[in-house]
Design a protein around this nucleic acid. Structure first.
Lengths: 154, 154
DNA sequence: AATTCTAGTTGACAAATGTAAACGAAAGAT
DNA sequence: ATCTTTCGTTTACATTTGTCAACTAGAATT
């Protein structure tokens, strides 16, 4: 059974990032790397590693007495799963605005931009004028007061 | 003190969505609306409401014996905070790809698309060829093996 | 005034998560 | 063959979160 990224806790993510970034490693190196960002003890990080292995997010291969940890989920997939999960519980009507915000804040490469532009051009052909709110489920679209929201809150 | 959206738990979000969507409401209506999506008891939802008030995510105004709950955080801001928080712990180098994925999966209105296109056009002028990995902090860029990752995992 | 609804408050408890000390066994060193 | 590292495993415990039932006080009824 392979885990889904949404089942990883924030602390576990931190550990996964190190492994994703530096490649397969022994616990020692993992601990060292994690500790450069978080003041966690060896013990704590070992616990996180063990939990990740138990859940199938990591696998191990023995190298002598030690273990080498291998990610069982690709970083990209994990990131996509997590971001998609987040978007899934946002109001459909407002996802666009959130994306605009994200794109504005994110540093993008020329390639990224190109890909996005191509994608948008394609989507423009069939995009609706407005996306309906789905906050209350299918049969409640009229109850939604989303559109009225402006500057009630600071 | 106003709360940040990232301090809301998933269950609390569910409650907030109802209030955001339907406007200020008494607990009764909130409970009813939430129960159309989740099989939570009255009690549970009351607890969530109380916790949200305690943390400042909601405020109340008395209407006779009852309370009317008002969001203290705008939905859009909450969504942006949450999505930005998520992106903050993704590898900088791969954020672009994640965005492409999100844009591909998200239904967008013509207006959204237009905004994104304008934004991208502007960013294209100064965008770098490549975004550097930042997984291990500033002084470790060489240690990153991000680029090598391809199809090791399914 | 007594009874019954309400709507909000307290207290609880199990599961998940963050955090870590203590323990045990295998590898190396003397 | 010991002694000492070095790793991994077991336990543990405080918080946070999900979920509720029980309780209480004010309002509406009879």
């Amino acid at each position: 059974m392979t885990v889904t990224a949404t089942e990883m806790t924030p602390a576990e993510w931190e550990v996964m990032r190190v492994i994703w970034t530096m490649g397969d490693l022994g616990s020692n190196d993992i601990i060292k790397a994690v500790q450069e960002k978080r003041a966690w003890t060896e013990s704590t990080i070992k616990t996180l590693l063990r939990r990740l292995v138990k859940r199938g997010a990591l696998s191990t291969s023995a190298a002598g007495r030690k273990f080498i940890y291998h990610p069982e989920i690709a970083e990209k997939i994990a990131m996509e799963e997590t971001s998609t999960a987040l978007f899934d519980h946002l109001c459909a009507m407002k996802k666009g605005g959130v994306l605009v915000n994200l794109v504005a804040e994110t540093e993008l490469s020329q390639t990224d931009i190109q890909q996005l532009q191509d994608l948008l051009a394609a989507k423009a052909k069939t995009a609706p004028e407005q996306v309906a709110c789905d906050c209350l489920g299918p049969n409640h679209e009229q109850d939604c007061t989303c559109s009225q929201e402006a500057s009630t809150n600071d």
